[in-house]
């Protein structure tokens, strides 16, 4: 069927996508690598010079860098913990017979469709604000002092906001997977006297493992690069308490105009993402092939 003619036609049809993506992968990344070896500040044009690994040395000895690595991983792990566990729970709940299931699903999925800047600003102002926020009102009405979320627990606040946005997606994926579980298998297990817990651990959970790995993979890709939520809520602060790697590089590039330093940071972010991706792909390769 695949004659020489169709094969060359197929190649021509794939060419635009492949060439564009290849260019998108190679050209800017090569430029970033090149810049990362230069002293290059936009405020001092014409002063560019080759400095070898100086930018990396600067970045890797900056305490803010280690804080940023820690925060990046804390956001990924914190949000994953909430969304995976919460998502399994919610998916199991939504899979039960109930009235108005479709409407509940619409309510639950909604936060995923909200643009990140809106989600973050609504939480920051209308809920977490220590004077006018709803949480402050609730705290006062039970006699507690209001808690200043974004100043006293900036990282946790961001994790909560981001988790709120991503919980729906985890739920939706897990629910979709759950609904493809054979009813007869469940009934058979029930007839064989398997209790609710053993049905969950021996039947449902193994069935969900593929969906759970997919959730972890996709969430990790996006969570490594959380940006807008930090920009509009804490601006990385107080200090660098809620600065992740993405935000650190942004600040270095567009606030300090340090092209060389920001490029080195960008390359470190790429390396970090690759390390994470390497382990993820291995893990996922195992589950998806099974």
């Amino acid at each position: 069927m695949a004659t020489l003619h169709t094969r060359s036609a197929a190649r021509a049809m794939m060419a635009p996508s492949v060439v564009l993506l290849l260019a998108w992968m190679v050209v800017p990344l090569a430029m970033t690598i090149y810049f990362s070896f230069l002293r290059y500040n936009l405020l001092m044009p014409g002063m560019e010079e080759w400095v070898g690994f100086d930018n990396y040395r600067y970045f890797l000895t900056d305490p803010a860098f280690f804080q940023a690595i820690f925060n990046t991983l804390a956001i990924v792990l914190g949000v994953l913990l909430i969304t995976v566990l919460g998502g399994i729970g919610l998916a199991l709940l939504l899979d039960q017979p109930m009235f108005g299931q479709g409407i509940v699903r619409i309510l639950v999925i909604a936060p995923f469709l909200i643009m990140p800047t809106v989600a973050a600003l609504v939480w920051k102002n209308m809920f977490m604000n220590p004077v006018n926020g709803l949480f402050a009102y609730l705290a006062r009405s039970v006699g507690l002092p209001p808690f200043d979320f974004l100043n006293n627990a900036p990282l946790l606040s961001i994790i909560l906001i981001v988790a709120w946005q991503w919980l729906p997606f985890a739920t939706l994926i897990l629910l979709t997977a759950l609904q493809s579980l054979d009813e007869e298998q469940k009934e058979a297990a029930q007839m064989d006297g398997a209790g609710a817990w053993s049905r969950f651990t021996y039947l449902t959970l193994p069935h969900l493992s593929r969906a759970i790995t997919v959730v972890i993979l996709i969430h990790t890709i996006f969570l490594l690069s959380v940006f807008a939520e930090i920009l509009v809520t804490t601006n990385g602060g107080p200090g660098t308490q809620s600065t992740n790697l993405t935000f650190l590089v942004y600040a270095q590039a567009l606030l300090q105009f340090d092209v060389g330093g920001a490029s080195a940071g960008g390359i470190i972010a790429v390396i970090l993402a690759n390390i994470v991706a390497f382990f993820l792909m291995r893990m996922i390769g195992k589950t998806l092939e099974a």
Binding site: W24, M25, I221, T246
Partner: peptide, 18 residues
């Protein structure tokens, strides 16, 4: 193609901006 999605956008922020 899927793997290109794993590149963090900050990796190319500086050159794209310039």
């Amino acid at each position: 193609m899927l793997s290109t999605k794993m590149m963090p956008p900050v990796g190319v922020l500086v050159p794209m901006y310039l």
